[in-house]
Design a protein around this nucleic acid. Structure first.
Lengths: 358, 358
DNA sequence: ATTGTCTTTGTGAGCGCTACCATGATGCCC
DNA sequence: GGGCATCATGGTAGCGCTCACAAAGACAAT
């Protein structure tokens, strides 16, 4: 045999090879098929007979073969490049978002880049940076996703945009979010089910469409229970702890104070709790309090907050899937009525709400 | 000319090329040098004449060339594979950590994988997963990095470990962290400089080495100011909001109550603030309060907390650099006395501390 | 038996880059 | 000036994979 000739290239190869990992060719050899067949099994693309598939899969398992991502993307060149544009590197939900997008991007064979964007920056600069890195699509989490100047600017730069945790749809971009109104309604129903009849609501600033949705959900639940929404039981804050303190102060100073307070976010709920503590009201015995968002704050205060959990991880994944699908075949989507996905929420019952005793 | 032959491959090539991005060969052609020279400039590896370098750099700028990462790693195979092993996907500092590691890994030409690990899992399972993905080094943030079983298990699987935000060094692993004692000392000095003479301290649970360090820093600062540390002015919590409330209650119930309270983390500081509110003590006028860590909690409460900012992003980057350097040349490091890097902290003065008026 | 259509599998080339060696150019010593 | 080390640069051969296309096999219709 011409072993000498055979071994020469293997010698050089071994010198260059990175890890000791088996390659697709190794699998093919073991399975007794061509590399192409293995590739097809791995990507389960085309029609393959069950027999070939089984042989290949066995060989993959035997060797512990893991495809080389770099080689794959180099050869394929059909891998999409996405960027996650974020504003605040320490935003509470960013890590969960990041993890969700990163994992899903991996599963979708897409590359995820990270790009920060400060509000005082020019949108054109961001677009230029993204284009330089050959980004095709942008994942835009809240609150950036509500900036229509930014969304339009990205679209003008021929970048597809998927908005994450958006309150409502926006023309020209894919959107994923939750149903704020339904969530607020459910939380209110939870309080009603606990026997509360006089419920205070701390609304958020009118500048955000989200605030109106949450308030509407609150009112809707009362209506469905045949209760009138007393204007004195609605106070407005600006999503900060302090505004929650003040709003609760106003609500509790009422001649007919509430037995429960539902705040439009966790920070305001925590503020309301601080006020309750100061007034000597024991939570939840004398006053039930609940929040919205399930941020770290919800578990940090005592008693821990009953709140609405946003499906952050799911939103991140769905947005990524949607964006990749859009990039793969824009034709699949009606160009001026892009999907707006609303995912289910979850009411997390903790220690800050309890049955109302008269 | 044999144009027909020349153009045939270009036609096929254009069909397969992904983006319209220029390649290294394009740059070489424009600069009138060989691809190899361009590669050398890009990696600024070897000796290149200034003339060549300039020509190439100009061509790179003209074409807006960006190296193809996939091709690079495929050809080079000298790229290191790291994994960030995390426990809690929504931990406050994870996003900043993630961002830091991700960015630095990119700059170091390393690939960063993410792997979650639940405390109830077998370490060997984790090691197997990591090995399957050809991971060579692991970034291990707090609190996982203090689990010596885990660190040893990883080491046993021939994985290099870099611990992030570790309180103290551990044999067999690289460590990066802050100087808890110095930080606590500085924060105490801040209070002393504001005129406070009777300062309450809320220590953390003795199970964590960190707690002792922070307490030692507090005591040291008092000593340096020639003040005796009154045992009645030290209460112990367990890093939760509630324990902070209770500890503050105890401190403030003293016959000679403190004018300031320094809690070993932000959650306990927030708890202390809740107690102060309940007791009708205005913060900071009647009681200054400060925390540690600068988590989201610090900015969420009102008034916002004066606290110690951990250099999370820097720790992440330094750990990544250290790990990559270790993998590149383990020989550079003394095998049983691996580096333990202590990074500088920052005292963030917000609204919860003020000058003490007698 | 021959032709055609369909499906499954194989072949060869090349994605963009870098490791390795070979080349020519320069300087330096004896 | 021949030999030697030293430098900058070029040529070649892949890295592991997937693409386009070709070939081979299976089956029905002619």
């Amino acid at each position: 045999m011409n072993n000498g000739i055979q071994e020469e290239p293997r010698g050089r190869r071994a010198r260059r090879r990175g890890g000791p990992g088996p390659t697709l060719a190794d699998v093919a050899r073991l399975a007794g098929v061509s590399p192409m067949t293995v590739s097809r099994v791995v990507n389960d693309s085309a029609r393959i007979t069950q027999a070939s598939r089984d042989k290949v899969e066995q060989a993959i398992r035997d060797l512990g073969y893991v495809p080389n991502q770099a080689a794959r993307s180099l050869a394929g060149a059909r891998q999409h490049r996405l960027a996650l544009v974020y504003e605040n590197p320490s935003a509470a939900f960013l890590s969960e978002l990041l993890l969700g997008c990163l994992e899903q991007a991996g599963e979708c064979d897409a590359v995820l880049l990270l790009e920060s964007f400060r509000a005082d920056e020019e949108v054109t600069d961001l677009v230029a940076r993204l284009q330089r890195h050959r980004v095709e699509g942008v994942l835009l989490p809240a609150p950036l996703c509500d900036d229509s100047t930014l969304v339009d600017g990205l679209a003008a730069g021929h970048l597809a945009v998927a908005r994450i945790a958006a309150t409502q749809a926006m023309a020209g971009a894919l959107s994923v979010g939750m149903d704020d109104e339904a969530a607020a309604r459910d939380m209110t129903s939870h309080l009603l089910a606990l026997g509360h009849r006089r419920i205070g609501f701390i609304a958020g600033s009118d500048r955000f469409p989200m605030s109106a949705r949450r308030r509407a959900g609150f009112c809707r639940a009362l209506q469905q229970a045949n209760l009138a929404a007393d204007p004195a039981m609605i106070a407005t804050g600006d999503y900060t702890f302090r505004s929650g303190m003040e709003a609760a102060q106003a609500l509790l100073a009422s001649a007919n104070p509430p037995s429960a307070i539902f705040a439009s976010n966790d920070d305001m709920a925590a503020g309301a709790m601080a006020t309750a503590h100061r007034l000597g009201l024991e939570v939840p015995r004398a006053l039930s309090i609940c929040g919205f968002d399930d941020t770290a704050m919800a578990r940090a205060v005592w008693p821990e907050l009953t709140t609405v959990r946003q499906p952050v991880s799911n939103m991140a994944r769905e947005a990524t899937i949607l964006l990749v699908r859009y990039l793969a075949s824009p034709a699949e989507f009606a160009s001026h009525d892009l999907p707006d996905l609303r995912l289910g929420h979850e009411i997390v019952v903790r220690a800050s709400t309890t049955r109302h005793v008269t």
